[in-house]
Design a protein around this nucleic acid. Structure first.
Length: 740
DNA sequence: AGTTGCCAAGTTTTT
DNA sequence: CTTGGCAACT
């Protein structure tokens, strides 16, 4: 490759970036602050490896956080390097593992056409296990058990180890379920998301020659968003890098926001210990945001104790001060966001796609949507109910999955009576029992329904018909493309006609969704020039909303703060900045959780290039009830040098402090007085409680309010007592007094 | 077997 | 305000 090309690769990089690109051998850790051009470093590094170090592209493995990021990286590398770059493996941990496991599945006792089960399927399995064990779902909620199992897998704790460390009754129950859950998954020839990460490690442990193959195969490893890897992912990388140690990880401890999902911040904090001789680079120049925006982000995140000291800087302009806007309620908030967008469009000549509206929880999107729709502003919403998780979509997919994988009993149970065939729960149970006794998959049992005495002839005929239907399509699969097959199937089971016949707006939408699914499959068939239904199903199970988010369409984007990671927008609205919502009240129990919320704020703020708006509402409708809110503590952590604060609330008459009969006089109380809007009946409260307030209860002792629903004497409080834990109390009845 | 309607519960965040 | 689960209908 010519010298000019190499220079071209290094041109326009700053000194640190250039050094990080050229330092290709051995372990490298790149601390990359928000907007510091880390994607640039990664892509240039890959291109540099190929062009300058003459590395075979097929030896490079690049791991990203989302499929979308993978796609982008591939495009950018292709632009820099030759077409050979298409042979690089780029993907998420999940998609890469799936790709490896497709080849190696049989070594682990799975079939190659194993399926990937999503959360919904996982819950069905858990429920089935609970039923078998006669464990009550009330006592042990399937959701909690699932999170426990998922947590264990993220920490690479298998069923046996889990059983050994399980102490409390809940954990022991989980241990029991865990074993059977895994057994059931395997019998269905399926893996859940976590298995995709765990199984390659088992594979490497049990088959050293396989590990060796992949170690040689992937000579250069690059990992993006390293701060959000978990223990299992760490082990995966460790195994692969053990020989050559050519591991380059890029991350930012301030942007670690997936601790709740098992991400282990130690992975980044300890990498220098784990990889002796590891080179460390710090990208601290930000190219994205104005000085003011960076200062806002920094003022908040600097309050975290668990963090590597650092400060981003930028040569960009100071820009406008960020805005902190207060509103009466969530309606006023969303209306103002719309007004502000219109102003920006008009005054600054922006496009719809320049805006993003961020929020902490998906439930907050509805009001914003309403306001945008009323103003006829086009918007795209990322997240919420995912397309591939909609009922009608999952039903059609369940057919396709069953056709691909006759062992998939979960899918079978989903569709055996959809559309209605008169095969009820009791018949399915009988069939299941028969399958279990004979040790055959459920579908095969369906084919032999005549052997089950207790099933009536009429139902038996229905079951057999269903069985034949699946068999027919299993055969057709060879002749038809995935698209044709799905279309024929949907036609035969007549669900589109059914949706049409129901003629409600809802069923109409469902029909449309199924139509959309069919064209997605068609598209896939064309794009891949293959009739491989399995590949489609795999892609579908690993796809996320952010992956399909189309940033070219000209619309305002709405998404959660979590989804926003890695993206940037000229104008950012961070909404719902209220104590209890952001930071979320559930995160106030431990400092670790609070710090994660703070990092989330940091991620949100650093998405902004030019303008940052932060809004909060004094009252917000939640669970169909209005809640009183205080502004988020994060807003108070920001210095007024960087923000302008505007209160859009109608000014109520000032309420003299003394009107509160028993108002205490500590500092906290006062602060609340300043920020709390005065309401008609507020002065009648015997006492004022607020989240974070310390209280005394005659029998529970001292505690702290962690949540407050409603106000006045009908308010419901969650109080975390230092001795007895969290209790739910009604102000009216509990004899609580404030401490101060 | 399937439909309707009531009640309870719940929301973090997602690969 | 929504969703899911369950019970009591048709």
């Amino acid at each position: 490759m010519s010298q000019t090309t190499i220079n071209h690769l290094l041109e326009g990089l700053n000194d640190v970036q250039r050094a990080a690109v050229q330092d290709t051998e051995g372990p490298v850790l790149i601390h990359a602050g928000a907007g510091s051009g880390k994607t640039r470093v990664l892509t240039h590094r890959v291109a540099y490896l190929i062009q300058h170090r003459k590395v075979n592209p097929a030896e490079i493995l690049a791991v990203t956080f989302t499929n979308k990021a993978a796609k982008e990286m591939r495009e950018r590398i292709l632009a820099l390097a030759s077409g050979a770059a298409s042979r690089i493996w780029i993907g998420t941990f999940h998609s890469i593992s799936a790709r490896i496991l497709r080849v190696e599945a049989e070594r682990l006792g799975y079939e190659r056409n194993f399926l990937i089960f999503d959360r919904d399927d996982q819950l069905r399995f858990i429920k089935q296990v609970l039923r078998e064990l006669y464990i009550s779902e009330k006592e042990y909620p399937p959701n909690s058990i699932l999170s426990a199992i998922s947590g264990a897998k993220s920490a690479f704790v298998g069923p046996k180890e889990y059983r050994n460390i399980a102490r409390e009754p809940f954990e022991q129950t989980v241990a029991q379920v865990y074993v059977l859950y895994q057994k059931l998954l395997k019998e269905s020839n399926g893996m859940d998301f976590d298995d995709l990460l765990v199984n390659p490690i088992y594979l490497f442990q049990e088959h050293p020659q396989v590990l060796e193959h992949y170690q040689t195969r992937f000579n250069y490893l690059l990992v993006d968003e390293y701060q959000d890897t978990n223990r299992t992912q760490y082990l995966f990388l460790q195994k692969l890098a053990a020989r050559h140690k050519n591991l380059c990880v890029v991350g930012d401890d301030d942007q670690s926001i997936y601790r709740w999902r098992g991400a282990d911040i130690q992975n980044i904090l300890n990498i220098e210990k784990d990889y002796p001789g590891c080179k460390v680079y710090r990208l601290e120049q930000n190219y994205r945001s104005t000085k003011h925006i960076l200062s806002v982000a920094h003022s908040v995140v600097r309050n975290n104790k668990q963090r590597l000291p650092k400060k981003l800087w930028t040569a960009n302009a100071k820009g406008e001060k960020a805005k902190v806007l207060a509103f009466e309620d969530q309606i006023a908030e969303s209306l103002h966001v719309v007004t502000s967008i219109k102003e920006e469009l008009h005054d600054n000549g922006r496009n719809f796609c320049d805006f993003v509206i961020l929020y902490r929880t998906n439930a907050q999107s509805r009001v914003l949507e309403d306001a945008l729709r009323a103003a006829r502003i086009p918007y795209i919403i990322v997240g919420g109910v995912r397309f591939y998780e909609r009922k009608e979509i999952k039903d059609v997919l369940a057919y396709l999955r069953l056709i691909c994988n006759p062992k998939d009993s979960i899918s079978l149970k989903r569709v055996i009576n959809f559309p209605l065939r008169g095969i009820g729960d009791t018949s399915v149970e009988k069939l299941e029992q028969f399958a279990q006794e004979s040790g055959i998959p459920l579908l095969e049992a369906a084919g032999r329904a005549d052997e089950v005495e207790s099933i009536s002839d009429r139902i038996e005929a229905q079951i057999k018909q269903f069985h034949n239907l699946i068999r027919k399509y299993a055969c057709l699969r060879v002749e038809l493309s995935a698209g044709e097959l799905a279309r024929t199937l949907v036609d035969e089971i007549g669900i589109l006609r059914k949706f049409k016949a129901t003629a409600t707006e809802e069923s109409y939408g469902r029909g449309e969704n199924v139509g959309e699914l069919l064209s997605a499959i068609d598209n896939f068939s064309k794009r891949h020039n293959s009739n491989d239904l399995e590949h489609f199903l795999e892609e579908v199970s690993l796809i996320t909303d952010i992956d399909s988010w189309d940033d070219r369409s000209n619309a305002v984007t709405l998404m959660t703060l979590h989804s926003a990671k890695g993206l940037e927008f000229p104008v950012v609205y961070m909404t719902g900045l209220e104590e209890g919502l952001f930071p979320l009240s559930r995160s106030l129990n431990t400092n670790e959780e609070l710090e994660e919320e703070r990092r989330l704020f940091y991620v949100g703020a650093t998405r902004a290039e030019e303008r940052l708006y932060m809004t909060w509402a004094a009252r917000r409708l939640r669970y169909g009830e209005y809640f009183e809110n205080l502004p988020s503590r994060f807003l108070e952590e920001v210095d007024d040098r960087f923000v302008e604060r505007i209160d859009f609330r109608r000014t109520y008459r000032e309420r003299p402090y003394t009107e509160h009969p028993r108002g205490s006089t500590n500092g906290r109380r006062q602060r609340q007085e300043e920020t709390m809007p005065a309401y008609e009946d507020f002065s009648q409260d015997a006492q004022s409680f607020y989240v974070g307030c310390e209280v005394r209860h005659p029998s529970f002792g001292l505690g702290k309010i962690v949540r407050m629903d409603g106000r006045g004497e009908t308010a419901k409080l969650s109080v975390k007592f230092y001795d007895v834990g969290v209790k739910r109390l009604l102000v009216k009845y509990a004899k609580l007094e404030t401490v101060g």
